[in-house]
Nucleic acid binder design. Structure first.
Lengths: 133, 133
DNA sequence: TTGCGATATGTTATATTGTAACATAATACT
DNA sequence: AGTATTATGTTACAATATAACATATCGCAA
């Protein structure tokens, strides 16, 4: 393993941390291009894949976007709550729920390998006092 | 509500039923274009959105594709098991699990509205005897 | 029944997201 | 050093999705 790409990984991680919201691959690309004009999509996707793989970021399938992992990194699947109003994402961990899920899907002999759990709704701030017009 | 678009809905539903596997919007488009040369993406997406809305089909976010609902139609969120080998999708229903999920994500005051649950893995046929080389 | 507002559908164009394929460079091993 | 292997850079393009506006249909009131 080289150490070249790792600098870029940190840079991308920083971008996600600063935004603290879901960011699309092309947004990341745009950010990177501010300093690296020749940056290509492929490169960004590779970095995002690497970061996702090692659990430092999460991909939000239903938003086609990425967020920084709030726990720094972890292996077990996350439950991601997406506020459809403010866009912020909360991360929950519930191993027992994952186990139950595997059990449910396993009834037919299905062997679960990767869980994608995304919950859309409204976060506490946006749900309670939604500031009427 | 008109009855014009409903014919198209049935046609799309038929395509998904016949394939019995996840189908991309553009695959559906291609199929439709066999008889309707001028069919446009927008139209297909609108039909798919309508069918999804009323629960007759499900969108697989992690595959960017759609499947026919195995139960004909329903309102509660489905748990979709996707076999990464043969591509087939199984559908589970587990209201208690959804309730638990809402409870977990609700700890912070988050109000869940829509659950996206997709499980990748291997189905019974593909997992047990994967036909060695 | 006709006129009009609201809604659905058709059409064109374009935006966004994602990868294939190959060139080049770094690494690791003999 | 020489060479196989893996990572990275680069170009081009494929696949997915939506904006914006035109046209048609419907529901309803005057």
């Amino acid at each position: 393993m080289s150490g070249r790409g790792e600098v870029l990984q940190l840079e991308v991680l920083d971008i996600l941390r600063q935004r603290n919201k879901p960011v699309s691959a092309y947004d990341v690309l745009g950010e990177l291009r501010k300093t690296k004009v020749k940056m290509a999509p492929q490169t960004v996707y590779r970095v995002l894949a690497a970061l996702t793989e090692c659990g430092k970021i999460h991909r939000l399938e239903s938003l086609k976007a990425y967020v920084n992992c709030q726990h720094g990194s972890h292996q077990h699947a996350s439950i991601l709550s997406i506020c459809d109003d403010c866009g912020r994402v909360e991360e929950s961990v519930a191993p027992d729920l994952l186990a139950k899920l595997s059990k449910v899907t396993g009834k037919t002999g299905f062997a679960a390998q990767r869980h994608v759990i995304e919950v859309h709704g409204l976060c506490a701030s946006c749900g309670t006092g939604p500031a009427p017009a």
